[in-house]
C-alpha cells in the first residue's frame, strides 16, 4: 500500500494502480471517455487531466496512465485544468457535434459548442480505442485495430474485409462510449464489421446465446464442458435449482 493525496485528502492505493482508478474509487469526479476498468489505460481522450506535484514540481498529466506514487499530491480540479478540459472537449466534439454521448459530456464540462471546424469524417468515433482493447485484451480475438495515422487514423478490420478472427460477441459495440459501432441482429443472424454470424439458441427456451464462434472461444478460454454452452443463464439456473431440490428435499419443496 502506498499513500498520497488527492485534493488534499489522504488516499491509499496498491502499487501498479493508476491515479484515475484510485480517484474514482474514492469518489472523486474525473471525466473520461477512453477509460474502462476491464482493459488497460490508454490515454487517448486526454479529458482526465489532473495536476500532479512530485518533489516540488507540478505538471499537468492524464490521470489514467499516471501511476499512483507515494507522496505525490494530485489536484483534480482548478481553473487551469477546467479550461484545458473544456478545450479538449471542444476538440473531441469536432469529431461529431451531434453525438448525444459527446453532448452529454460537453454539458458536464460546461462546453455548449465547439468554435472549431468539424472533422472531415463525422462518424462519431473519437478513436478512444476501447473497442480495440476490449477485443484484444478481454476477448482475445484481436479482430480490429487502428489503421493509418494522424488525422486519417481510423478503426478497421484488416484490409476492411470481414474479419476472420471476429467472433461476433458485440463487446466492442457495448463498450463504445459514443455508441457508434453498428450491428444488426434478427431472429437467426447477427451482422457486425461486415460479417454475418448465425445465432445459437438455448436448447430449453430458445433465447439467443451468441454466435458459435463466440461460444467456442469462451469454451476454449474457460475450459468448461461444451454442454455448459447449451443453455442460457436463466435455464441453467433453473436446472441447477431443480437438481439441488431433488438432492436436498427429494424433489419436494418444504
Amino acid at each position: 500500500m502506498l499513500t498520497f493525496t488527492i485534493d488534499g485528502q489522504t488516499v491509499q492505493a496498491e502499487e501498479g494502480q493508476n491515479l484515475l482508478e484510485v480517484a474514482l474509487a474514492h469518489g472523486f469526479d474525473i471525466p473520461t471517455l477512453c477509460y474502462h476498468p476491464s482493459v488497460s489505460a490508454y490515454g487517448a481522450c486526454r479529458l482526465c487531466l489532473v495536476e500532479v506535484t512530485q518533489r516540488g514540481r507540478s505538471r499537468i498529466t492524464t490521470s489514467c496512465n499516471y501511476p499512483a506514487l507515494p507522496g505525490i499530491s494530485v489536484v483534480t480540479r482548478n481553473d487551469r485544468i477546467d479550461r484545458l478540459r473544456r478545450l479538449v472537449m471542444e476538440l473531441i466534439l469536432c469529431r461529431d457535434p451531434g453525438n448525444p454521448q459527446l453532448q452529454a459530456m460537453a454539458d458536464r464540462l460546461g462546453v455548449d459548442r465547439t468554435r472549431l471546424r468539424f472533422a472531415s469524417r463525422q462518424d462519431g468515433c473519437i478513436l478512444c480505442g476501447l473497442c480495440e482493447r476490449i477485443c484484444r485484451e478481454s476477448i482475445g480475438a484481436d479482430a480490429i485495430s487502428f489503421v493509418g495515422r494522424g488525422h486519417e487514423r481510423r478503426l478497421a478490420t484488416p484490409f476492411d474485409e470481414p474479419s476472420e478472427s471476429c467472433v461476433g460477441c458485440l463487446a466492442c459495440a457495448m463498450v463504445c462510449p459514443t455508441q457508434v459501432i453498428e450491428f444488426t441482429q434478427d431472429a437467426d443472424t447477427r451482422t457486425i464489421w461486415k460479417r454475418t454470424f448465425t445465432l445459437v439458441k438455448c436448447k430449453e427456451c430458445g433465447a439467443v446465446l451468441g454466435t458459435p464462434e463466440e461460444l467456442a472461444l469462451f469454451q476454449r478460454k474457460t475450459g468448461l464442458d461444451a454442454s455448459y454452452f447449451d443453455t442460457c443463464d436463466a435455464c441453467r439456473k433453473k436446472q441447477t435449482a431443480t437438481a439441488f431440490a431433488a438432492v436436498t428435499w427429494g424433489g419436494q419443496r418444504p
Binding site: 476538440l91 472549431l116 472533422a119 478513436l127 480505442g129 495515422r149 494522424g150 488525422h151
Partner: peptide
C-alpha cells in the same frame, strides 16, 4: 504534423488538424 501525428491523443490529432484549418 497533422499527417505525421500518430493520432493517439485527441489533443495532438484534432488540435493540430484544427490549427491547420485556421
Amino acid at each position: 504534423l497533422r499527417s505525421e501525428s500518430c493520432g493517439k491523443c485527441s489533443t495532438c490529432r484534432e488540435g493540430i488538424a484544427r490549427m491547420y484549418d485556421i
